[in-house]
Amino acid sequence: MVRISEFQIKDVVNISDGRRLGNIVDFEINTDTGKITAVIIGGSGKLFGFLGKDDDLFIPWTQIVKIGADVILVRLKESTTFQYQLEKPKE
């Protein structure tokens, strides 16, 4: 069994290009099945939050490759950080 707090301290890394995407701030759960459908990576603050905040990243659970002791590996298409922003999955 794994606690949500244990997920939140792990770094999320895209194995397609090695970028660190951030940390999980929330989960999306299908209330009918009780299964996690996506993890949400919090957007980074720009200049200590004075210039706003980047959008959160929704990463579908199916894109998670491996959950390790210190890191969660995901596979997203190679591209720049701003293009990682995925549309929220439809149920």
Rank of each mutant, 00 (worst) to 15 (best):
I9S: 14
R3T: 06
I9A: 09
S5W: 07
P89H: 13
K53E: 13
K66N: 09
I36P: 05
Y84P: 00
L47M: 15
K88Y: 07
I59D: 05
V71Q: 03
D32R: 12
L47T: 10
D32N: 15
L47Y: 10
L51C: 07
Q63A: 11
R20L: 14
L86T: 11
V65R: 12
K10Q: 12
K46L: 15
I59E: 05
P60F: 10
I9T: 15
Y84L: 08
E6F: 01
I40Q: 09
D11W: 13
K53I: 08
V39I: 15
F82R: 12
T81E: 15
F27D: 05
S44C: 04
I41S: 00
T37A: 01
W61K: 10
I64A: 01
N14C: 13
R19H: 07
L51A: 14
L76F: 10
I24W: 06
V65H: 11
G49C: 07
I72K: 00
E91L: 12
L47P: 02
V71G: 00
F58L: 03
G45R: 13
L47Q: 11
V74W: 03
G22N: 02
S79F: 02
D32G: 10
L76Y: 14
I72P: 00
L86G: 14
A69I: 09
I40L: 15
R3Q: 07
W61G: 02
L51M: 14
R3F: 06
Y84S: 05
G45E: 12
D54R: 13
W61C: 03
K90C: 07
Q8A: 08
M1P: 04
D70Y: 05
R20A: 14
N30I: 07
G45F: 13
G68S: 06
I4A: 15
L51V: 08
F7C: 06
T33F: 02
V71S: 01
F50N: 10
E6W: 02
I29R: 07
L57R: 08
L21F: 04
K88A: 06
T62F: 05
G34L: 04
G52D: 11
F50P: 04
V74P: 02
I29C: 06
E91G: 07
D54E: 15
T62W: 04
Q85K: 05
F48A: 09
D11N: 15
F48D: 05
I29K: 06
K77V: 10
D17T: 12
T37W: 00
T31L: 10
K53W: 05
G42D: 02
K46D: 10
I72F: 03
L47R: 11
K10H: 08
D70A: 10
I59V: 15
V74M: 07
D32M: 09
F27C: 06
G52H: 11
D70L: 04
K10W: 02
V2D: 12
F58V: 02
S5H: 11
R75D: 07
W61V: 12
V12T: 01
E78G: 08
I41N: 00
P60M: 11
W61T: 08
D55R: 13
L86C: 08
G18M: 06
P89S: 13
S79C: 08
I41K: 00
L73E: 12
K77Y: 06
G43I: 03
F27E: 04
I24H: 07
S79A: 13
E78L: 07
I41G: 00
V12G: 00
K53T: 12
R20V: 14
S5C: 08
I64V: 13
K10V: 01
G45N: 10
V13R: 08
L47K: 12
A38T: 09
T33A: 00
V13F: 03
I41M: 00
